[in-house]
Amino acid sequence: MAADPAVPHPGRLSAIDPEPGVRKPDPLLILDEVTRTFGGLVAVRVEHLEVQRGAITALIGPNGAGKTTLFNVVSGFDRADDGRWSFEGQPLTGAPAHRVARRGLVRTFQLSRALARLTVLENLLLAAPGQRGEGALPALLRPLWRGQERESEHRADELLDRFRLGPLRDDFAGTLSGGQRKLLELARALMTRPVMLLLDEPMAGVNPALAQSLLGHITRLRDEGLTVCFVEHDMDVVMGISDWVAVMADGRLVAEGPPHTIGRNAAVVDAYLGKRHDEPEAADDQGEED
C-alpha cells in the first residue's frame, strides 16, 4: 500500500460541488466519453468521471445501470466502443486486463474467483508483482528467484494474518467458505501492491458480520493511502464508509456527491424509485464462461 503522506485527505472532497462529472483536486482515474453498447442497448455512456486519489468512491445504481460493465471496460476485461481513460496521468484506454493490473489498477469480482486447486498461500504468491521466476527459463534456475520468493512468502503471511486466514494458508482455496474467499480475494489483490482497487460488490452474498469486517478492512486500507472504488447497489452499505458517491442509471452518470447529500438528490431518487429499471440486463453480469 503506497502510503504517501502527500496524499490529500479525502475530507477535501467536501468542498466540491456535488454534480455529475465534477473536477476533483487530485484525480487518479479520469474517464471521458466512455461508451459501451451491446447490440442496440447502451450499457454505458459516461461523459466525464474523475476518481479522487486516496478516497473511497462508491459507484452505485440500480441493477442494470452499467456499473459492472464500466468496471469491466476500465479493467480491460471488456472493450469500449468509444472513449478515453487515464490512470495516474497516463493513458490507459483499451489496455488489456493484465497490463491494467500491472499499472496498479486491480479489480476483484462479484463472484469470487478463488483458484481452487492452488493453496491459499499460492493464491497470494501468484499475485506478487515483478516475479523473476515467472519467465520459463529463469524458472529453471531456482537461486535466481528463491530470495524473492521468500520475501513474497513473508509478505503473504502478513496479509493472511491481517485477514485472519493464517491457519488456512496451506489448504486448497477451493475448500474455503464463501466469506473466506472474499477475504482471500481482497488479500490477493493487495498482494499485487495496487495503487487503486476496483471492488465489484465486495459485500454481495456475505453475512452481516463479515460485511462489517470487510468494511473495516476497506476503510483501513484507505487510511493507509490506497484508493478504493467499489460497486454496490445497496445504498445503505455505501453511506457508512464512502467519501464520495457516484450514481449511475441506464448507463449514465446521473449524480455525484458526498454520501450525506446523495440521498436527497432528485436524480438518485428518480433512478431508484421513480422510473422502472427492472428489465434484466445481460451487460451487468460478469458474462465470462460460467
Partner: peptide
C-alpha cells in the same frame, strides 16, 4: 496452474 483454475482471475492479477 492458475490459468487452469481460472484464467480471468490470473489476468486480473497482471498475468
Amino acid at each position: 496452474r492458475s490459468i487452469r483454475e481460472d484464467e480471468v482471475a490470473a489476468r486480473s492479477l497482471g498475468k
